[in-house]
């Protein structure tokens, strides 16, 4: 696509979309959002970029091939599930470590396996959608 307006606008849009996708990812769990929707928005960002500058450019911006990204995401999600093994809980039981307190009300923030799982999902969705999208764009 050779529209100068589109390619100039795309730069802004892509940056916004990527930041928004991270926002959605972190907003999850307690509010609408999460890994899946975040990954979709992130994928949209890269698709807009590849429409503006070509799939080759978008691929090099992604740095890692989308298939590997998806598989790494699957691995991270699995690890988050397996994280409950040493604590003696069943698979995928959320593990929470509260910083500066001992519950949701008192703690400043928490480190937990749920977010790690969401990050894994984010990468799986991003990688999966992008590998499809890039394959389609190269076809035409």
């Amino acid at each position: 696509m050779n529209s100068i307006i589109f390619s100039a606008g795309a730069r802004l849009l892509v940056a916004l979309l990527l930041v928004f996708s991270l926002f959605m990812l972190l907003r999850g769990h307690n509010l609408p959002g999460g890994g899946f929707i975040g990954g979709l928005i992130g994928a949209v960002g890269f698709i807009v970029y590849s429409l503006a500058c070509g799939p080759a450019e978008a691929k090099s911006a992604l740095r890692i091939s989308p298939e590997v990204l998806g598989m790494v995401g699957l691995g991270i999600a699995l690890l988050a599930g397996l994280a409950s093994l040493p604590f003696g809980d069943p698979l995928f039981t959320g593990q929470w470590y509260w910083v500066g307190g001992d519950s949701y009300e008192t703690a400043a923030f928490s480190i937990n396996s749920v977010l790690v799982f969401d990050i894994g999902v984010y990468l799986v969705v991003l990688g999966g959608i992008l590998s499809l999208a890039f394959a389609f764009e190269e076809e035409t």
């Binding site: 298939e67 590997v68 598989m71 790494v72 699957l74 691995g75 699995l78 599930g81 397996l82 069943p90 698979l91």
Partner: peptide
């Protein structure tokens, strides 16, 4: 009960990488 499902999944990830 988890391992017969989880082990092939982990293997799949490693084998792909």
């Amino acid at each position: 009960l988890v391992f017969p499902i989880a082990v092939p999944f982990v293997t799949a990830v490693l084998a792909y990488l």
